[in-house]
Amino acid sequence: MPLTQVERVRRFNRTVTQRIGALDDAYLARGRPLGQCRVLWEIGDEGSEVRALRARLDLDSGYLSRLLSALRADGLVEVSAAADGRVRTARLTPAGAAERDELDRRSDDLATDILARLDESQRGRLVAAMGEVERLLVASMVRVAPVDPGAPEARACLDAYVAELATRFDGGFDPARSIPAEGALMLVATLHAEPVGCGALRFHGSWAAVKRMWVAPSVRGLGLGRRLLAELEATAAAREVRTLRLETNKSLTEAIALYRSAGYREVPAFNDEPYAHHWFEKDL
């Protein structure tokens, strides 16, 4: 990683934390640090399971427990457990809901103050840049790792894959008619512990087939499809695979564009996949 890029990211982080008041021990002058305020906001009006809070905020369980304990001591949050004790839910008390409303008001004031010191052109540039930075930061939080194809997160991705193809293919999609991917190596992408993408490799000696590429609609546009494909290529290369092959349906125009831009060339059909219209190949 170029050192200059690392230095720019660190400088950006310092500027942001100072400008939004993250360094203050009483964020927005409310007597508590930013971490407690964010948890209070994240619990929301409907409450939230503690494990879901931990996943959304990417917090260590011990640290989250300390944040919740501090909010409970201030009378802002209640935490209850289900009968089996395994699922705990955090909810705002009336005082907590009032505090959350006040934090929302002061957060609006802070955002207004940031924008008010800029002219109209600068405000537009800042908001547009923030949108781009947010998308890229979300992309950087996605984790890609191999999982057992039978794991819940893998099954969730494959079920979503089948459901989407059923709506996009002419005549629907029946996985029983498609060439199976059993025995494949499976990569799953997760964001805040939720599965948001997958891809698989089925090995055939010196070549391997890319199967079951899917990205959740909620994270499309973040470059995750390209990242999954690159991870699959790296995994295949590490196993001394020399060629990757894949097939796809004519309706998946985004996938076709991705494969072509990633260096895959269209080749004659190499299998009898009934849902395929295009076959691609790439030498690694």
Rank of each mutant, 00 (worst) to 15 (best):
Leu137Gln: 10
Ala154Ile: 09
Arg14Ala: 14
Lys250Arg: 14
Leu158Lys: 06
Val142Lys: 00
Ala73Leu: 10
Met1Leu: 08
Arg117Met: 07
Arg226Lys: 11
Thr248Cys: 15
Tyr27Ser: 07
Gly150Lys: 09
Cys198Arg: 05
Pro152Arg: 11
Pro146Asn: 11
Thr190Ala: 11
Trp207Asp: 09
Pro175Cys: 09
Arg242Thr: 12
Phe173Ile: 03
Met141Tyr: 05
Leu222Trp: 07
Trp214Met: 04
Val147Ala: 13
Leu68Val: 02
Glu182His: 14
Trp279Ser: 07
Val138Cys: 05
Pro149Leu: 12
Leu92Ile: 02
Asp108Phe: 08
Glu46Pro: 00
Leu3Ser: 13
Asp108Gln: 12
Leu40Gln: 11
Leu284His: 06
Ala200His: 01
Ala166Asp: 15
Glu153Asp: 15
Ala176Asp: 14
Ala73Trp: 01
Glu281Gly: 03
Val188Asp: 04
Arg239Glu: 10
Arg72Lys: 13
Ser69Leu: 11
Met213Ala: 05
Val267Thr: 14
Arg125Gly: 02
Ala90Trp: 08
Pro152Asn: 09
Ala83Lys: 12
Tyr63Gly: 02
Leu23Glu: 13
Arg19Pro: 00
Val138Gly: 00
Ala116Met: 07
Leu126Thr: 10
Gly221Leu: 08
Pro149Cys: 14
Ala234Trp: 02
Asn13Glu: 13
Arg242Asp: 11
His278Glu: 05
Ala160His: 09
Glu49Cys: 05
Ser140Lys: 07
Tyr259Pro: 02
Gly75Met: 00
Glu254Lys: 10
Arg100Lys: 01
Asn13Ser: 14
Arg86Ser: 08
Val215Leu: 04
His204Ala: 13
Ala237Lys: 10
Arg226Pro: 00
Ala29Phe: 06
Ile179Met: 04
Arg30Asn: 09
Ala52Asp: 14
His278Thr: 01
Asp113His: 13
Ala128Val: 13
Val196Ser: 05
Gly35Trp: 08
Glu132Tyr: 08
Ala257Tyr: 04
Glu153Thr: 13
Glu164Phe: 11
Gly223Asp: 02
Ala26Glu: 15
Arg88Glu: 12
Arg123Asn: 05
Thr93Ala: 03
Ala111Met: 11
Asn271Thr: 00
Glu42Asp: 10
Ala236Trp: 09
Gly197Ala: 06
Leu110Asn: 08
Ala236Asn: 08
Leu115Pro: 06
Val50Thr: 04
Gly221Ser: 06
Ala129His: 10
Val215Trp: 07
Leu222Ile: 00
Arg30Trp: 01
Pro94Glu: 03
Ser48Thr: 01
Val144Phe: 03
Gly225Cys: 04
Ala145Trp: 07
Leu126Ala: 11
His278Trp: 05
Arg123His: 05
Leu23Phe: 10
Ala189Ser: 06
Gly35Asp: 14
Val50Phe: 00
Glu273Gly: 01
Asp24Asn: 15
His204Glu: 11
Arg91Lys: 13
Gly96Met: 01
Arg56Gln: 12
Asp109Thr: 14
Ala97Cys: 01
Pro274Tyr: 04
Ala160Cys: 07
Arg106Glu: 06
Tyr161Asn: 12
Val144His: 03
Val9Phe: 06
Ser107Tyr: 05
Ala116Tyr: 08
Ala81Pro: 01
Leu57Gln: 13
Val144Asn: 04
Val144Trp: 02
Pro149His: 13
Gly183Lys: 12
Ile114Cys: 08
Leu53Ile: 00
Leu137Trp: 10
Ala22Val: 11
Pro149Phe: 11
Leu191Asp: 02
Pro274Gln: 02
Arg100Val: 02
